[in-house]
Design a binder for these strands. Sequence first.
DNA 1: GCCAACGTTGGC
DNA 2: GCCAACGTTGGC
Length: 154
Amino acid sequence: MNYWLIKTEPAEFAFADLLRQPARTECWGGVRNYQARNFLRAMAGGDLAFVYHSSCPEPGVAGVVRIARPAYPDPTALDRHSAYYDPASTAAAPRWVAVDVTWHADLPRFVTLADLRADRALRELIILRRGNRLSVTPLLPAEFHRICWLAGLP
DNA sequence: GCCAACGTTGGC
DNA sequence: GCCAACGTTGGC
């Protein structure tokens, strides 16, 4: 079991929007950074990930998803009408990947960015590093469980 | 391979 | 809107 943190802009797609998707499942694509892509590739079915809201009035951790389907070619990269279309990616040689994520748990408490920064146990969290921009990052099991605790999960 | 220019991210 | 930080691009 591996643990992850994935970013989204809630104005585009918020954690709560998962509840309105068929089977509470969404294709998580559009990642266009090689390091983040490699983390997507490293995900296994059943892994858990926090969904983090960024570029919004209250940045922070909003919920937990489970990886329902591991990496496959990102359909948005091949779709001419998608904002994430990449002409350098082809069906024969796909450059980008997506995973499917399924709703796993709501959080009793929204964990703000300030909460994360204030917690000494989370000092090494990748997204707290200066200048970090990765939209997909791994979490240590201890970090995952610490954030669960901050969120009021059992 | 270097590196300047440019674009993007994301908190504030 | 600002700006720091970083990734990518492309000329050389």
